[in-house]
Design a protein around this nucleic acid. Sequence first.
DNA 1: ATCTTCGCTGTTATCGTTAACAGAGACGGC
DNA 2: GCCGTCTCTGTTAACGATAACAGCGAAGAT
Lengths: 342, 342
Amino acid sequence: MTAALRTVSLEDVAKEAGVSIMTVSRAFRRPEALSEDTLSRVLQAADALGYVPNQIASGLRSRRSQTIACVIPTISSSVYANVVQGLSDAITADGYSLVLGTSNYGVDEERRVMTSLLGYRPEAVVLAGGDHRPELTRLVTRLKAPLVEIWELVPKPLDMNVGFSNHAAGAAIVEHLIRMGSRRIALMTIRAEHARARARRIAYEAAAARLGHEPIVVTSELSIEGGRRGMAMLRARHPDVDGVFCVSDSIALGAMLKANEIGWSVPDEIAIAGFGDFDIARHIPPGLTTVRVPEARVGQVAGEMIMSRLLRRPEGPYTVDVGFEVVARGSTNRNPMKRVRR
Amino acid sequence: MTAALRTVSLEDVAKEAGVSIMTVSRAFRRPEALSEDTLSRVLQAADALGYVPNQIASGLRSRRSQTIACVIPTISSSVYANVVQGLSDAITADGYSLVLGTSNYGVDEERRVMTSLLGYRPEAVVLAGGDHRPELTRLVTRLKAPLVEIWELVPKPLDMNVGFSNHAAGAAIVEHLIRMGSRRIALMTIRAEHARARARRIAYEAAAARLGHEPIVVTSELSIEGGRRGMAMLRARHPDVDGVFCVSDSIALGAMLKANEIGWSVPDEIAIAGFGDFDIARHIPPGLTTVRVPEARVGQVAGEMIMSRLLRRPEGPYTVDVGFEVVARGSTNRNPMKRVRR
DNA sequence: ATCTTCGCTGTTATCGTTAACAGAGACGGC
DNA sequence: GCCGTCTCTGTTAACGATAACAGCGAAGAT
């Protein structure tokens, strides 16, 4: 067991500078309250000793941990990685730090991890989505701290909410498929559907009903390989479809590659749409039509709303819809007159 | 300014259970030291009140923050996202949490951010790479806390080091190109070269010398679009090359797509190799030859080494080479006899 | 000349927890 | 019956910072 070593404290700096510890404390927190002479002497002493203010002691006494707790499903997904990046950038300027946990898409794990993070007495809490264990809901609402649910717009936010409507996005992309000429559209989704995928499915089902056909749903895994398999299944079971909405770009990419292999012509025989606008989507011929969500902006707005509540005006918007954009590319471009968007 | 509210403390639980606060503290930290009866009474009271141990107070008194500070260049890169995921997974089991910061590839920003994180008195520190500001080096070494430099193997680690050799990986992939028949090989790299890309370039230059030609270097941006541009430049300036090593899969993908567009046949006229083994690399026809690094494992091993030093046996290995793997696929498969690896 | 105000610095108590030690019974050995 | 040992619980004093207030000159007001 490594011995826990003492680091430089206010007292050490105070001795070095020949002042009281309170004066040193003020040198960092309210420098304008000190005389120029004292201030420079203190800062010089602090610098010489390599003093770094102890946030733990400060947090205990002042009840301000300068910390924000965030639990997301996973970091290994560019979606959440970008959200976290935006969040982190938005709060560091004000001296706040991010304490991060991952739930691996499980509500029990989310509760466990966030409960443990609450031990650090974060001044604000960020959770993904709107589906949480009631025990966790009780715990975080009782904190009376700013709380943001991110990524999807939820029906009844606990406090603040930043994201976009998966239902609207699903409806928009299926609408796009229809407008481009598809009349029999399938949905390719994932086995264990979470709230996000479910909302997209519901929008799809409504559209299928309007087209006058039963929903055609293929389930697979969330990967390129999953998309390939899904496409093979679709070809075998429903060769009559002329459009497919994949709930993720990974799946759509796999579907597109598989279609190419088996000679199912995209977009002439089958149009393909994805979700996420991954980097590759615009580059893979003939270009993948998809939905783009401003990921980093979700985190950034969440961070700004939190900091606004913590430091500035007490009130602001509680729900922000960051929107989405249907990016039309070649994979749905049935009309040879229209140019492919790059 | 939000009022900082009091949360449930040991004292509240102690009153509720009719014991001293020390007994409550022990119920969480050394439950075996209490009688069964007392323990259950305390736990029940804690549960009823929704008590979450205050890590800040605990950390202050015990000098153990249960926190590990980590600064990486960016989270918006699957590489670091995976490393962080592995690290996070490895430490949460022991009750530790990750405090995360990003440097955006700048050593000054790295120093600034890590210094701020040191305020939380982390029990261990994780930094990316081996290039740090001397002020930061002084600060973190003086902590006497476990310190891990991750991702690349560095010549003189400050303490522990987990990663792989970019030089060896670069040499291996160029060697593979040569073995597959390339005789005039170009390097496609990025403008602002960091230590990683530089090590790969040096390996490349040695190989070019062995082949008996001057280094042929094209610089571009780290993106698919950058790869496309790079490939166009290469075609214009060096149409005689028959192989290209791209320092990233993004670039290699762009290069491959561009080659396809301009009718430069891959792999027959030009072999292409990338770096990173992104998901798409195996799926894009004819399959992209690349280097696979066990990203999550880097984080996991770093986490295990730290926990080992903090909680268990005092000593273990100081440097771990997680290695890499050249994944041979169609983009370098000049020999029609050999099957493409999927 | 005295009072008030202001700018600057110091003193005291406290945040919630744990390290260290102290004490009260129970229990068994001799 | 005395003493040591063991099990369980409680008391006291920190950890390093800050909130709140106190003090003390100097300058300005009356």
